[in-house]
């Protein structure tokens, strides 16, 4: 699997975590205080709590359940129940490659050596979930295999979240409100057809 766009950069502020999903794999996306973005498996190694519910302090992400804190490399740096303990190196969140490019946050679940696709200088507008499989959405725009589809002054970058849902990240050269309403109308049409 190659790079998958999972969010717009503007939707993940500094010192914030949020959930994402690629083909059934749950992710915690988070941005450190200094602006560095990370994509981890959405599971604290301690008790399986979703890390996307966690909180960011400085350059670390903490689990909301017991406050276990993880550094940039995913390694556990602090266990509040045992303040004097240096956590063993084996306690580590699952980390994935994650970069920002073209106003999008891209994640690769497997090792990739290429850069994410270059988009054509359009402005990111919004991400919209469509309750339809990705290939059906792509087919609606003419190519079921595509993950990036172009329609007049819009570009859609498609993210398959699971077998039944996908997210369309919308970029546009048009008035962003026009683009926002356009994708709402497209979604209604696609979900209507799919149903």
């Amino acid at each position: 699997m190659d790079w998958v766009a999972v969010a717009l950069s503007q939707d993940l502020r500094n010192a914030m975590a949020m959930p994402a999903r690629i083909d059934g794999t749950d992710l915690a996306l988070w941005r450190s205080m200094s602006g560095q973005v990370h994509a981890w498996g959405d599971r604290c190694p301690h008790r399986g709590m979703r890390l996307s519910h966690g909180f960011v302090r400085g350059e670390t992400l903490s689990c909301i359940y017991h406050g276990w804190q993880y550094g940039q490399d995913g390694g556990c740096t602090s266990i509040p129940a045992h303040p004097k303990l240096t956590p063993p190196k084996t306690i580590c969140a699952t980390t994935y490659q994650c970069v920002e490019d073209g106003g999008l946050i891209w994640v690769a679940l497997n090792e990739v050596t290429t850069a994410p696709p270059t988009l054509s200088g359009k402005t990111p507008v919004r991400s919209v979930q469509i309750n339809t499989p990705r290939h059906e959405v792509a087919a609606h725009f003419g190519d079921a295999e595509a993950t990036i589809v172009n329609a007049v002054d819009m570009t859609l970058v498609l993210q398959s979240t699971d077998d039944a849902h996908c997210i369309a990240h919308v970029l546009s050269t048009a008035d962003p409100k026009v683009a926002s309403r356009w994708i709402e109308a497209q979604r209604a049409e696609i979900e209507g057809v799919a149903a």
Binding site: H46, R47, G48, M49, R50, H53, I64
Partner: peptide, 21 residues
């Protein structure tokens, strides 16, 4: 919290989760 633990079932075998003292 309880509705957001993965997996939903409680793992009985050690290894999947990391207990401390």
């Amino acid at each position: 919290i309880l509705e957001n633990q993965i997996p939903r079932k409680l793992p009985l075998d050690p290894g999947l989760e990391a207990p401390t003292q």
